[in-house]
């Protein structure tokens, strides 16, 4: 097998992506983990470009490395959960078992991929437009219209679920206070003040 420039780039980037994944696994600070994961996603998007999927690569950068990881970072900083306290876990034995099973898994996959697979077939060349936005959009709206619509419904349900789950369930919302028959007049007065339009400074409140 001859060493082509693509192969060199592939192995360099593969090393970077595996290193980033390891960094995500083993760094103690959750912020560092999230940033390692962003690096991993960026490297994988370069792989997508090498695999003639330019549009997917751009979506990967904007949606995965952009939106999703920003959401992760936002939650980590909101909770102040960068450092998790070290404590004795009741499931210590699970770590060794996980590593053992992971080695078995990768061994089985390597056996199938490298020993059982047939000789490498020549990869068919593709046109310049392959994997571009026009190609993807045509395929998406002609052959995969129903899954596409179902996906939009899934996103809607997820959005509603996120809103419902993070709602303050201890009844401190304004609606709950008003519907509560035992609401004191002080509460109502406070609500009225909150709800009143702020008077400009220097003018006495009516």
């Amino acid at each position: 097998m001859t060493i082509t420039p693509e192969l060199v780039i592939f192995f360099l980037l593969a090393a970077v992506s595996i290193g980033a994944a390891l960094g995500m696994l083993f760094s103690r600070n959750a912020i560092h983990s999230a940033l390692f994961l962003v690096l991993n996603f960026a490297v994988v998007s370069v792989f997508f470009i090498m695999l003639a999927a330019p549009f997917i690569a751009m979506v990967q950068v904007t949606v995965y490395a952009g939106a999703i990881m920003v959401l992760f970072l936002f939650v980590i900083m909101l909770l102040g959960a960068e450092m998790l306290r070290r404590g004795g876990s009741p499931l210590r034995w699970q770590t060794g078992l996980a590593l053992l099973l992971a080695v078995l898994f990768i061994g089985a996959l390597g056996y199938v991929v490298f020993l059982r697979a047939g000789p490498l077939a020549a990869i068919a060349p593709v046109g310049v437009d392959y994997g571009g936005p026009v190609d993807i959009g045509t395929k998406l709206f002609q052959d995969y219209l129903l899954p596409f619509e179902l996906t939009s419904f899934l996103l809607l349900v997820a959005m509603i679920g996120a809103v419902v789950l993070t709602r303050d369930s201890r009844g401190r919302g304004i609606g709950n206070r008003l519907s509560n028959p035992g609401a004191t007049s002080a509460t109502l007065k406070e609500l009225g003040q909150v709800g009143a339009p702020a008077s400009p400074p220097g003018q006495p409140r009516p």
Partner: peptide, 15 residues
């Protein structure tokens, strides 16, 4: 898309 939905719901659960 599924990953985005999962992250939204999962992070809401974590919060």
């Amino acid at each position: 898309a599924v990953a985005a939905a999962e992250v939204a719901v999962g992070l809401a659960l974590i919060v």
